[in-house]
Write a protein that binds this DNA or RNA. Structure first.
Length: 565
RNA sequence: UGGGCGGUCGCCAAGCGGUAAGGCCCCGGACUUUGGAUCCGGUAUCGAAGGUUCGAAUCCUUCCCGCCCAGCCA
């Protein structure tokens, strides 16, 4: 085995390697993850977090957590708290390097004054609408603002008066003096400061002018000594502007590198849309287990390891792409398969009576906790005369390829005996199967000398008298469409919401081992999937499980194909 | 029709002039007291057309398609 195949490389890693090789930045690697605290982190952010923190760790560098909090009207401490806990949960540590663009407001202001004094910036009295008109279009150049030629002295005075609050919102801006004819619209005298009499979640009322992202971001990176400013594709057009600011200011110049943001099938990842899902009540909140937020995935039962593994595998490139959510689910199952203890739970109980099993007898059978990890030991599972099995494991008229129980057929109960269905009890009114009468073969007890008799199927089960009742929430993709945004005109993307994204089952039965299951603990319910104890609604009195993901299910696939014909 | 960036298997993605990695999905088969896991095997000539070259996904030319930019959002 070569050592080269383990870590797939990508262009950003290559750039950093080369920079290091030629001794750039004093062989220093310093990145940052710069979220705006205006929403919860989602799986797309995880890609960026893994990239930035991962690269820094890999090259012995550092990664800062910096909040780009330049727009007080949209930001909130609730979001900074959630972001911090999500990054921590994902497994990354920014040490004491928790920064805020708002920490740099004074410095940024001084930078602005510096540019004004160099005749590189001016106070403009044009309204927002006028600025738009003066900007020109994609194909026509813009025209200079009439205020572009103000004297340095007047600009300094006006900007100072903007700061102390002499002017109402929107009446003036500070603009960079670049080139109104530039083919790159970002260079057509972009706004650097706007007047906004709004309280900031950190600086309170100290400021009534706020730097735009474009004026704050590059300089913030510079101030922090960032070597590689990794961001998404849409900022490629802004790079010349950031370069311009940094050059005019003659300060440390980080290298900006852009990559394609993550898109996932069957989900939306725009903050605006996620906010809408929450506000319109399509989900119960930012941490609804169907949300692609880190809070949602956490509550759903995803492990941080699986998300990191996913981010590693999808790669980093500049091509717009939509990753199949099956990839994420694969990473999840791979991780959970290794670590989740196995347990038996019956979601839709069908009562069966073993007619030849002694009335009062109870056997404690040995069950393996995790066949992938013998170190996890075994446990006892009670077996008795009346049991529950899964409704879907019985068919009165078994279709082709159905190996499970049906009249006259034999099947093994996992860790127990081979049983045979001898009678079907139906509700006289509805015809629904209400109970099965079965017999067991005492010679086939698991682990016994003659237990090797082969049967086509093995079923999970619980003992009726010993089982614990639980609620189980079956989650599925939030959207039926692969790409929820792909709608005919006039149709809203929310029409793609999956009406069956949540099915709640209230009379499930789980084995007694689960009585003390702790919040968030994860299990594999054998033959069904991975489940976790819900962190919000589960309690000692009422166990609530979330289905994290199903097991791969070939039979379901076969059946689906058969139905299609 | 201005500028920026992309187009390699159904989905991601390596490749940087020497004759198409890998993962996911899918399809076979082996094994299995989870129809799970595991294990084997299978599936592309690189957006198109020209050109350069002994040789091109990789270089050149032209064309086609997709994404982003006209917030005092980030």
């Amino acid at each position: 085995m070569s050592t080269a195949e383990t870590t797939p490389t990508h262009f950003i890693r290559n750039i950093i390697s080369e920079d290091l090789a030629v001794g750039k930045n004093n062989r220093r690697v310093h990145t940052r993850f710069p979220p705006e605290p205006n929403g919860y982190l989602h799986i797309g952010h995880a890609k960026s977090i893994c990239l930035n923190f991962g690269l820094a760790a890999e090259f012995g560098g550092l990664c800062n957590l910096r909040f780009d909090d330049t727009n007080p009207s949209k930001e909130d401490v609730e979001y900074v708290e959630s972001i911090k806990s999500d990054v921590r949960w994902l497994g990354f540590d920014w040490g004491d390097r928790e920064y805020y663009a708002s920490d740099y407001f004074e410095q940024l202001y001084q930078y602005a004054v510096q540019l004004i004094k160099a005749s590189k910036a001016y106070v403009c009295d044009l309204s927002a609408d006028q600025i738009r008109e003066y900007r020109g279009t994609l194909t026509e150049p813009g025209k200079d603002s009439p205020y572009r030629t103000r004297s340095v002295a007047e600009n300094v005075d006006l900007f100072q008066r903007m700061r102390v609050g002499e002017f109402p919102d929107g009446t003036r801006t500070l603009r960079a003096k670049i080139d109104m004819a530039s083919p790159n619209l970002n260079m057509r005298d972009p706004v650097m400061y706007r007047i906004l009499h709004a309280a900031h979640h950190r600086t309170g009322d100290r400021w009534c002018i706020y730097p735009t992202y474009d004026f704050a971001h590059g300089q913030s990176d510079s101030i922090e000594g960032i070597t590689h400013s990794i961001c998404t594709l849409e900022f490629e057009d802004h790079r010349p502007l950031y370069d311009w600011f940094l050059e005019q200011l003659n300060i440390h110049h980080p290298q900006q590198i852009e990559f394609a943001r993550l898109n996932l099938t069957h989900t939306v990842l725009s903050k605006r849309k996620l906010l809408q899902l929450v506000q319109q009540g399509h989900v119960t909140g930012w941490d609804d287990p169907r949300m692609p937020t880190l809070a949602g995935f956490r509550r759903r039962g995803y492990t941080p390891e699986s998300i990191r593994s996913f981010c590693e595998r999808i790669g980093v490139a500049k091509r717009n792409s939509i990753v199949d959510i099956a990839m994420l689910e694969h990473c999840l199952r791979e991780d959970l398969n290794r670590r989740a203890p196995r347990v038996m739970a019956v979601l839709r109980p069908l009562r069966i009576v073993i007619t030849n099993y002694p009335e009062e007898q109870v056997e404690e059978l040995d069950a393996v906790n995790n066949p992938e990890d013998p170190g996890m030991g075994t446990r006892k599972v009670p077996f008795s005369r009346v049991l529950y099995i899964e409704q879907e494991d019985f068919r009165e008229e078994p279709p082709k390829g159905f190996f499970r129980l049906s009249p006259g057929r034999e099947v093994r109960l996992r860790y127990a005996y081979i049983i045979k269905c001898v009678d079907v009890v139906e509700d006289p009114k509805t015809g629904a199967v209400t109970e099965l009468r079965c017999t067991y073969d005492p010679d086939t007890k698991s682990g016994s000398a003659q237990s090797n008799r082969k049967v086509k199927a093995i079923l999970h089960w619980v003992s009726a008298a010993h089982a614990i009742e639980a609620e189980v929430r079956l989650y599925d993709h939030l959207f039926t469409a692969e790409n929820p945004d792909d709608v005919e005109e006039g149709v809203d993307w929310t029409s793609n919401i999956n009406p069956k994204s949540l099915e709640t089952l209230t009379s499930c039965r789980v084995e007694p081992f689960l009585a003390n299951a702790s919040s968030r603990s994860r299990y594999q319910f054998e033959r069904l999937g991975y489940f976790c104890v819900d962190s919000v609604d589960s309690s000692d009195r009422r166990l609530v499980f979330n289905r994290t993901v199903t097991l791969r299910d070939p039979w379901a696939k076969i059946e689906k194909a058969q139905k299609k014909g």
